[in-house]
């Protein structure tokens, strides 16, 4: 430890200033703006209206649809990401050349911009796209399915594309978790005559719980923010059946210029994120203890 305290403060100063000016201040400002009314382009006409904007939430059926869709999206993606991510991690948890190649390939979609993923998958899901072509060739369907155009298929399709993109991410985190389990535990279990299922049930599962909770929370936090893929693939349609909180906020703010009300939606997204973040930090401190 150095005692040149003054220099120390100078080192953290630039980061701190940036952080306060462009994150903390805007954050507090969001809360303030949610109590005001103004049309996006004239910044001088911001008037204080108290909780009036919050009263707009209950009758806003699109908001509730967005809330419900975000919930389905978060649960749907988290379930399948963890199922497939953990599955792949278990299968690929040995270091042969082959498993290394497979892991690398499964990770590739993680590198892509969700916009590009959206552009790709919109064509795949198109009524004339390759998915319907294949299903027709296999004789599974006679008429094309409107993956992104049908009320009850659109959100499912977006969940599918999201899972496709992020499975590699969850897989890598689970692999890290698996590699931290000491080999001796499996050896001891084997000497005790445990079969493979018992080893999985009694050694792998309990020791993976911490990692699993972390991955699940990360998927939740990521899911609440979902914007890009929905914007590119459906713009929230058809008839708001894929509307999520972030796309609703975007429309309210930048298409309809209702900035005060949009700030209310910001505050709600923020509150949900903070709940998950709180759970996560609780978890982290439990892990350490």
């Amino acid at each position: 430890m150095r005692t040149h305290r003054f220099a120390g403060y100078l080192f953290i100063l630039p980061a701190l200033l940036f952080f306060l000016a462009f994150l903390v201040y805007p954050l507090l400002h969001t809360v303030y703006l949610s109590l005001t009314e103004w049309a996006g382009f004239d910044l001088k006409k911001i008037t204080f209206v108290g909780f009036d904007n919050f009263k707009l939430i209950p009758p806003d059926w699109i908001f509730w649809k967005a809330m419900r869709n975000t919930f389905y999206f978060v649960v749907g993606t988290t379930v399948f990401l963890n199922l497939f991510g953990l599955g792949l991690a278990l299968f690929l948890n040995n270091s042969t050349r082959f498993t290394h190649v497979v892991r690398t390939l499964v990770f590739i979609p993680v590198l892509l911009s969700p916009v590009i993923v959206g552009v790709m998958w919109s064509r795949i899901f198109d009524p004339f796209g390759v998915l319907n072509q294949i299903l027709e060739k296999l004789g599974l369907i006679q008429t094309p399915i409107f993956w992104l155009g049908a009320k009850n298929m659109a959100l499912v399709s977006i969940i599918g594309a999201t899972v496709w993109q992020w499975v590699g991410y969850d897989m890598v985190l689970y692999l890290t978790g698996l590699q931290q389990i000491p080999e001796e535990l499996y050896e001891a279990a084997m000497i005790d005559g445990a079969n493979r299922w018992q080893m999985f049930r009694r050694v792998t599962v309990p020791l993976l719980k911490g990692v699993a909770t972390m991955v699940i929370l990360l998927n939740f936090i990521g899911g609440v923010r979902i914007f890009d893929l929905v914007y590119v693939m459906t713009k929230g349609g058809p008839n708001h059946n894929t509307e999520v909180l972030a796309t609703h906020l975007y429309e309210v703010a930048f298409w309809f210029n209702k900035m005060g009300y949009a700030s209310v939606i910001s505050v709600i997204i923020l509150a949900i994120s903070l709940v998950f973040a709180y759970l996560r930090s609780r978890l982290m401190s439990e892990e350490k203890a």
Partner: peptide
Amino acid sequence: LFHLILSGVMIPPVAVVIPLFVF
């Protein structure tokens, strides 16, 4: 201060786009 900066990971960009827009 360190934990203050670290807490920034919890904030989704979408929650601050409007004030950033004003700014």
